[in-house]
Structure formats: structure tokens, C-alpha cells
Design a protein around this nucleic acid. Structure first.
Length: 727
DNA sequence: GTAGGGTTAG
């Protein structure tokens, strides 16, 4: 709009000059042409056409061309018809080339009947007329018709040209007509059009859309000098088939080849980075954005925000968000989602409240944040607020709502959601149905879960089976789970999660043989023993009393997941296998998995149960200096437990010198106790003093007696303020 | 002279 008003100002200026010049040579026809032209330049199509329509004489043909062009661009059907009618009444025979432009304009206006009618009534047709009709169908949203007219053309006296093939390939892409495209490809090669970059790019596009990336790439590699559109196509197609790596790589190749990428290409490449969480590549693309001065493009900025958000760099995302002059619903929603997914719910909610407008996606993003962080009560009240403000929910909302109902075990609320789903036809969405099954299962309504499972109006998938089996497993119905597993295989393929459910069911009823069978089944059928499965296998073997075997499997797998290592080490400690726990810790180090604070807590506990005081101290020192993990209060508690239990009073004393926390009640009691047992009056008195400060009415009195080997607390109550006295 | 690709959010 701004550009137009600028242009019209210039036009007004030009017009004034013209009228001065025309004062001397007044020719009415020329004045009309100029007025029409000035209207055209100012984008006033209607005025231009009505002037034309009022004049009962022919104009220069180029004027009709320009008029049709503008009709096409602004999809003005009424004007297009008027221009056509003026053309045919004032030219006999009307020139074919300009009638072809009329056909094109009708196509762009999606008035395909006008296009076809004109085509049929034309006194003379040329190849361009066929092309115009084919283009009209392609642009007018009738790809099927495009192909049939193409076949019709092949039967006529005219041969298809490069222009024809371009539209035809576009329609093949929409219809995913791979066979048709291959035939067209053959004809293109035969006619010697292979070097045409537009046709080659269109072929890359069709093959890509038909999921034939090998063909697409081969086609692309044959292009001598791919242009920005060619690169855009290949980057986009790799992204859409899920090969984000190649998509990103081709983006960088574009730069290397010295081609300036389109804004679209930046967006595609950045989405590819988001999907793979390719942070470093994302930053580099950001650099390219700056280099090519695309920073101010709103869409590119939004893609950058999305990339940073998905790569967990909310700060960088926020910087771009704040700098953007074209903030829209997308920018706001991405940013809210970024905070929400990072668990920064306060900031998310603050931004959400400030949003100038919100879509269902914005609401879902906020709700998803509460769900992801497990803030169920907050999620529930957000849902109530949401219900007041907006009427509609979509499948994502319903999934989240069901998730909240399940986690809070709110069966009635879940049932309301189910009723909504039923009334609004969401039963045809598999993921929603699966969430309903999950909800009933979690709310301990097995009947409801089963009812939904067996009544699924859409096809059941693996997740549907898993949902029901999981709820059965959680209710100790292990036999039913097993039975379902056999049923399931007739209908769909189990996945890794299925097996973890089965293994949990086996663990519950100590079904060792069945568990072993499942393990074997997975190995024979090439299933990945992922983190979840490994955890389930370990649980099953250890619960069934075969910890050695569980450890063996774990040692072979050597997963890269610290949480799983932790649960293994903790598991060993729990059943008294402290040596194995420390053994696993060594292996973990060897495998290159970084231990975390939980790992060390488990390690210290192993040392406590074995009485490894020196090792414990070494681990503690290593944790701080070698692994750079800050010692938490929990770690100090472990060490204090270790030193007090085994009487390392000097070490205990040293530990208190470096401990940055105030000792807690339980720590002090433990110390107090140990000092009695190991006869350390200085530390004992210190502990007693601290305890007395912490517990005003209670009095601890440190006194070593002969019976001090019996570790009992001497609790001394003071009746008054006179001081403590021994009971 | 007519033709190809097509952005971003849960």
C-alpha cells in the first residue's frame, strides 16, 4: 500500500506535466490512453477498464496485454471479461496471443469455465493457446484437468513445448503422479530440453514430492548451473522427506556455489536445524542471514526464533524476538513455547498475557508447558481459563487435556473431554483416541479403556495397543497383557515400548521364563535395546532374582544415558551389591558417560555399605576436582554417614571445615551419636551446642559414659530456663 | 512474450 501511494504521487506529478504538454496538441484518443495508463500504473484497474470499455475504438495491443497482466495479478474476473470483450469486438480476427493472455487471466481467477469457453470459441489457436489453457488449469487448481488437456494437446496438431511441460510437471507433483512424471521426463529428454533449468528443477520437485529422493538428487546433480529456485527445491524436499542432515548440507552447498538463497530456503534450512537440534549449523545459518541482509525479513526472523527455541537457546531467541519489527502471531507463539518448554513458565505466562492476539496453537503451547513440567494443578486451572476464553479445542488441546486428567486421576473430567471428542468428531483422530485409552487406564477404569480400544472408529495403531497393555500392566493384570501381545501381532507390529510394558508385566509376577523369552524375541527380531527397554530388562532380571545377568546385559549395552547408569548403580546398592555398583561406576567412566550428582550419591552409598572410607573420600575429592560437580548437602550427608559409621572422626572434623552448609538436625544427631561411640568430646560438644540452638526446648548434653557403646541419645529436657539437667 | 519452487507457531 505504501509503495502504491508513493507511485501514485509520482504519477500525479507526471500527469500534470503531460497535461501542460497536451495543451498544444489535443488528441482525445491519446488522452484516454494516457489516463488509462496512469490508472494502470497506480493500480486502479477498475477505472482503467471502465475507461477502456467506454471507448468504442481499438487500442494498441500492448495495452490489452498490460490490462490482462494486472487482471491476472489481482485476480479481477469482471475486468478480465470486459477487456476480452473489448478486444474481440474491436479486432477481427482478434489476435491469438492476447486471447491466450485472457485464458491465463481466467485461470488465475479460477474461472476455468471462461478459460475453456474462450479456448473452444477461438477462431485461431496456436501452441500458445494450448499452453495457456494448460497453465490456466494448473494455476486454477485443477491438476487432474491439466493432465487431461495435455493428453488432448498431444492428439492435436500442436506439440508440447517447454512451457507446456513446466505446468504439467507441476500438476504431477500435486497429484503425486510419479508414472506420468517419468513419461514426461522421457519426452523432455527426447526433445532435447534436458538443459532447461526450469524443467530440471520441476523434475527434482516432482521426484522429491513422490518420495523418490535418489531420483531427485540425480536429476539435481545433472543441472549445470542450478539457480536459487533449484537449490530451494532440493533443500525443501530433503526437509520434507525427513532427511534434515542433507537439507542443511545442501543449504551450505548453495552458499559455496555462490548462489544467493531465497528467504524460503533460509526458512527450510532453519526448520531442518530445529528438527535435528543442530545448534551449531543453526548459528552458522544465522550468520548467513546477516551476511545477506535478510535479518529484517519477518518470516526469516521467525524461523530463526524457532531454531533457537528448539535448540534450547531461549536467550538468543528472545534477542531476535525483541529486535524484530515484524512480530506476528508466529513470533509470539514460538517465544511463548520456548519459555514453556524450557520450564520457564512464569516468563512464558507473562509473555502469553501480553500477546496482541492468540490462536489455538498459542493456547496449546502454554498448556503444553504446564504439562511438560508436570504442573498438573496449574495446567488444570489453565484449561478452565482456556474454556472461558475460546470455544474451540483441537486434537492437540484434547491430547493435553486428557494427559492432565490422567495425571491427576480426574476420571470425571476426562470423561467430559471424551464426550467433547465424541460430539465433535475427534474420534477419527488416532492420537486422541489413544490418549482417551491412556486416560481411562490411568484413572483405573480398565473397562472404559477397553471399551474405547475396541470401539475405535479409526484404525488402531501400535500406540493404541501399548496404551491398553500399559494400563493392564499397571493393574497387575500380567496374564492379560501377555494374551494381548499375541493378539496384537495379528494386527500390528510391536515396538520397543511394547516390550518394556511386557517386561514390566513379567517383573511384576516374577515370570522369569517369559521375560527371558521376550528378551530373546527382541534380539531375534532385531529390536533396538534402547534406554527404556534396557531399564525394563534390568528391572525384570533383577526382580526375578538374576541380578548378575541383568548387570551382564547392561555391561554389554553400555548405554550413553546417565540416568540409566544411575538407576543401575542405585539398583545394585539397594540389593546390597555394592561391589558391583562400584564396578559399574568404573565401567561408566570407561564408556565415557559423564556421571552426575546422583551417580555420586549412589557411589557414596555403595562405599557406606562396604565400609570403604578411603575410597569414599577419594570419590568425593574426584567429584569436585575431576568432574567439576559441586558437592550438595546430600553428598555431605553421605560422607558424614560414612565417617560416622566407621569412626573416621578426623576426616569428619576436616569435612565440617569445608562444608558450606549449616549442618541439619539429622546430621548433628548422627555426629552426636558417633562421638559418644568413638569418644570424641570436642566434636560431640560442638554438635550438642548446635542441636540446642536448633531445638530450643530440647537439651542435648554430651557426656561419655561407660555405656556409650550403646548409641542412645540423651535427651535432656529443661523444665525452666535454669539450664539443662540430666534425666 | 507465455514456465518451475514457496517461508514461520503447539
Amino acid at each position: 500500500m505504501g509503495v502504491n501511494s508513493g507511485a501514485s504521487a509520482i504519477n500525479r506529478l507526471l500527469q500534470t506535466n503531460n497535461s501542460i504538454a497536451e495543451k498544444f496538441i489535443p488528441t482525445p484518443a491519446k488522452t484516454t490512453v494516457d489516463t488509462i495508463l496512469s490508472h494502470l500504473e497506480a493500480g486502479r484497474l477498475k477505472k482503467a477498464v471502465s475507461l477502456l470499455f467506454a471507448a468504442p475504438y481499438p487500442f494498441d495491443l500492448s495495452l490489452y496485454g498490460r490490462l490482462f497482466q494486472l487482471c491476472t495479478a489481482s485476480r479481477a474476473i469482471v475486468e478480465a471479461r470486459k477487456v476480452e470483450s473489448h478486444l474481440i469486438t474491436n479486432y477481427d480476427p482478434p489476435p491469438t496471443f492476447f486471447l491466450n493472455r485472457a485464458i491465463e487471466a481466467y485461470g488465475k481467477c479460477r474461472c476455468l469455465r471462461d478459460a475453456r469457453e474462450l479456448f473452444d470459441e477461438m477462431p485461431h489457436r496456436d501452441g500458445g493457446s494450448w499452453n495457456a489453457l494448460i497453465t490456466a488449469y494448473a494455476k486454477g487448481g485443477s491438476p487432474r484437468k491439466t493432465l487431461s488437456v495435455f493428453l488432448e494437446m498431444n492428439r492435436s496438431e500442436f506439440s508440447p513445448s517447454e512451457v507446456t511441460f513446466a505446468s504439467v510437471l507441476g500438476s504431477c507433483g500435486i497429484l503425486l503422479e510419479l508414472g506420468f512424471a517419468r513419461v514426461v521426463h522421457g519426452v523432455i529428454v527426447k526433445l532435447g530440453y534436458s538443459d532447461n533449468v526450469i524443467l530440471a528443477s520441476a523434475l527434482v520437485d516432482v521426484y522429491g514430492k513422490c518420495d523418490k529422493m535418489v531420483d531427485a538428487r540425480r536429476m539435481f546433480d545433472e543441472i549445470h548451473r542450478p539457480n536459487a529456485v533449484s537449490w530451494n527445491v532440493i533443500v525443501r524436499r530433503y526437509l520434507e522427506v525427513g532427511d534434515e542432515r542433507e537439507s542443511i548440507s545442501m543449504f551450505f552447498q548453495t552458499i559455496i556455489e555462490g548462489v544467493r538463497p531465497l528467504t524460503f530456503t533460509f526458512s527450510s534450512a532453519l526448520v531442518a536445524c530445529s528438527k535435528r537440534q543442530a545448534f551449531l549449523e543453526g548459528i552458522q545459518i544465522h550468520g548467513v542471514v546477516v551476511k545477506f541482509r535478510y535479518e529484517d525479513d519477518g518470516k526469516v526472523a521467525n524461523s530463526l526464533i524457532g531454531m533457537y527455541v528448539k535448540c534450547n537457546d531461549v536467550v538468543s531467541a528472545r534477542k531476535i524476538f525483541d529486535q524484530s519489527n515484524e512480530k506476528d502471531l508466529f513470533s509470539w507463539t514460538s517465544m511463548v513455547s520456548g519459555y514453556a518448554m524450557a520450564g520457564r513458565l512464569k516468563e512464558a505466562q507473562e509473555l502469553f498475557d501480553k500477546m496482541p492476539e492468540r490462536s489455538i496453537i498459542s493456547w496449546n503451547a502454554m498448556l503444553a508447558g504446564y504439562v511438560r513440567s508436570g504442573q498438573w494443578e496449574e495446567a488444570l486451572s489453565f484449561i478452565f481459563k482456556m474454556r472461558q476464553k475460546i470455544k474451540d479445542a483441537d486434537s492437540v488441546t484434547l491430547n493435553l487435556v486428557l494427559n492432565v486428567s490422567a495425571s491427576l486421576s480426574k476420571l470425571e473430567f476426562g470423561k467430559q473431554a471424551h464426550a467433547y471428542i465424541y460430539r465433535h468428531g475427534f474420534e477419527s483422530v488416532i492420537s486422541v483416541n489413544n490418549a482417551v485409552i491412556y486416560m481411562y487406564g490411568k484413572c483405573r477404569d480398565i473397562k472404559g479403556a477397553k471399551y474405547c480400544f475396541y470401539n475405535m472408529s479409526c484404525r488402531r495403531d501400535t500406540i493404541s495397543w501399548n496404551s491398553l497393555m500399559n494400563s493392564l500392566a499397571q493393574h497387575q493384570m500380567s496374564e492379560d497383557v501377555m494374551a494381548m501381545f499375541f493378539e496384537m501381532q495379528k494386527e500390528t507390529t510391536p515396538n520397543e515400548y511394547t516390550f518394556s510394558i511386557l517386561l514390566a508385566a513379567c517383573a511384576n509376577v516374577f515370570a522369569y521364563n517369559q521375560g527371558k523369552e521376550i528378551h530373546g524375541f527382541m534380539i531375534r527380531n532385531g529390536y533396538a535395546i534402547d534406554v527404556v527397554v534396557l531399564g525394563a530388562l534390568f528391572e525384570m532380571y533383577s526382580k526375578c532374582g538374576h541380578l548378575e545377568y541383568a548387570i551382564k546385559i547392561f555391561k554389554n549395552a553400555k548405554p550413553g544415558d546417565v540416568i540409566l547408569w544411575n538407576s543401575m548403580i542405585i539398583g545394585c546398592c539397594r540389593v546390597g551389591k555394592a561391589t558391583e555398583a562400584l564396578d559399574l561406576f568404573a565401567l561408566m567412566k570407561e564408556t565415557g558417560v559423564q556421571p552426575d550428582n546422583v551417580t555420586f550419591q549412589a557411589v557414596f552409598n555403595a562405599c557406606i555399605s562396604k565400609g570403604y572410607v578411603d575410597e569414599g573420600k577419594r570419590y568425593f575429592d574426584a567429584m569436585i576436582s575431576e568432574y567439576g560437580i559441586m558437592a550438595r548437602l546430600e553428598h555431605y550427608e553421605c560422607m558424614i554417614k560414612l565417617y560416622t559409621r566407621y569412626g573416621s572422626m578426623n576426616e569428619l572434623d576436616n569435612l565440617f571445615k569445608i562444608m558450606p552448609f549449616e549442618p541439619t538436625n539429622s546430621i548433628l544427631i548422627r555426629v552426636f551419636d558417633a562421638c559418644k561411640k568413638y569418644r570424641n568430646p570436642r566434636l560431640g560438644e560442638w554438635a550438642a551446642g548446635k542441636l540446642n540452638k536448633l531445638n530450643p526446648p530440647v537439651r542435648y548434653h554430651f557426656k561419655i559414659t561407660d555405656k556409650s557403646s550403646i548409641t542412645t541419645l540423651k535427651l535432656l529436657f529443661s523444665q525452666s530456663d535454669k539450664g539443662s539437667r540430666s534425666l
